[in-house]
Design a binder for these strands. Sequence first.
DNA 1: CTGTTAGCGCATTCAA
DNA 2: TTGAATGCGCTAACAG
Lengths: 345, 345
Amino acid sequence: MKSKITLKKIAKEFDVSISTVSKALKDSHEISEEVRERIKAFAKYYNYKPNSLAVNLRNQKTKTIGVIIPQIVHHFFTKVISGIEHIANENGYNVMICLSNESYEKEVLNMDMLESGIVDGIIVSVAKETEEKEDYKHFKQLIDNGLPLVLFDREIPEINCNKVIVDDFGGGFLATKHLMNISCKRIAIITTPDHVMVGKIRKEGYIQALTENNFPIQEELIIKVNEKYDITNQIQKLFDQANPPDGIFAVNEIYAATVIKIAQKRNLKIPDEIAIMGFTDGLISEYTTPSLSAVDQHGYTMGEKAMELLLDEINYQDSDYKYNTTIIETDLKLRESTKKQIISY
Amino acid sequence: MKSKITLKKIAKEFDVSISTVSKALKDSHEISEEVRERIKAFAKYYNYKPNSLAVNLRNQKTKTIGVIIPQIVHHFFTKVISGIEHIANENGYNVMICLSNESYEKEVLNMDMLESGIVDGIIVSVAKETEEKEDYKHFKQLIDNGLPLVLFDREIPEINCNKVIVDDFGGGFLATKHLMNISCKRIAIITTPDHVMVGKIRKEGYIQALTENNFPIQEELIIKVNEKYDITNQIQKLFDQANPPDGIFAVNEIYAATVIKIAQKRNLKIPDEIAIMGFTDGLISEYTTPSLSAVDQHGYTMGEKAMELLLDEINYQDSDYKYNTTIIETDLKLRESTKKQIISY
DNA sequence: CTGTTAGCGCATTCAA
DNA sequence: TTGAATGCGCTAACAG
């Protein structure tokens, strides 16, 4: 393995000083045209690249930002990443993506690593396990260490930093309202355990919509899925009730798609016997039969916004920086799973 | 913004030398128990983290590897990444993910950046645009610079390095063979333009299966999708023929899912009137109606294997390193889109 | 026009 | 048991 070429080696080759080489490669006019050209040609030939570890160490910044996401298989997160990448690249930043796999421990490990100087700032969506433990020491430390931080999607109220969140409440509300509008009478929700904040808040939107419209809140219509066990089985129970729902709001794509599969197996007509709303940016929704109506999370926009906020903080010179929480409004992407034939008598 | 704590600052605090602090934090027995403990306590309290730029510069290695993938929204790539992460983390490596977005230019930019010393090795799946241009200078340079490289999925024959590829030929063959087994008589393929190697090779598997079984190769049954235009329209044409196919092999998930949508719109019964095979690790396949039979790409395994090969090369001391091409065998994941009611007379 | 020097943060060798 | 000195690769202020 050839070792990499450095300024030092080039300097030796030409029998000049290192700084002469450095300047020549930077096209400094301090260096004579001739020497400059020869050095540049040589460097180009040997494919010289400044060692960025050294450059960064020198400059005390890296032009790289870190992103920690809980999962990469969720389409929502990949959209967010694309949005982050877009703004980052536009501003000459590189993006380093790390996965926490919803694990507290991996989240801490990733942050430790990112905190060690390789990035100028960090964008995080909190792991479910961390939300469950409610242990946010590592975030506080990060901030204490002066590293800019932006939280997105899953945020932590007690941490003071820039945030970008979806209007989960509004989304839950809209979804539920839409089910009412297509005249569903018994509307169920399939959500996460309450420690997953986004699930909890979407549920609150659901409850608000019910309450405002004088629908009763019925515990048997609220399913909190524990992902450690079989999802289908937990959702099935909705349909085994004496009085099953005629409308379902699922807080994510997999739950919604699972409902479709179950409904089909039971020969329930979608949307006429059972209408379904999801909450997602995902691809699956477009390809189910019927295709799934869903609350649009605008993941790409979230990513862009998160990166903008991070740049804001990175570039802010004074000490009176004010944190900002950006709320991304949701809207509905209506497809077939809620497109009822309106029957007028 | 507080600036980060360094060895130097700790040294000043205790009025000892930097090297004493360094040793103390490494629990060196050269340092007296008492001093060691005090320094460690202090460092812990202030959340000291060695600056990895400095450490890496010193050690000439970073314990980080770079991954360049063309897209992140393809479930296959996310699976590969999970596999890479798994082996990387097991071996104390961090993973830095970069996206080329199928663009030659972004691929080169990413490689330039990674080549500048921040990673110990690189794993790449080639961008479509690069395949089209057949411009591989940047890969040659990378290797010349001595940075270990592993190519996966989309490889480049003329580049000499470790590789992990799916048995695309075998996959195409298997898929086509299975369509024959369920007694399809006119089997079409929906593939990519030939410059996308994986598409081309899968098509060759398809052709081999046809040929071996005395099926004619019919150009009108071979659709090469140009993703710059509407996919549905291009695929539709298959069904507008006088003699439409009764079996379709689509080389990726989106094409396959699109076929389902089209077939449904035309009221074609799947799989009886038209059977469909995809080629994917994706999630969509499970949630379409009917669910999609597909060639399993084993993305996770590919990722693991790629990382193992990279570690191999990184850790290899001698100069006679031998490159290896690992072929991941495919197999079929049969679901409903090919599950014909076998009717016996 | 070119070179010397210092320093970014750390680890390590050698000397005290 | 501690510290001084050196160097990883680079840049920039300053000197010549």
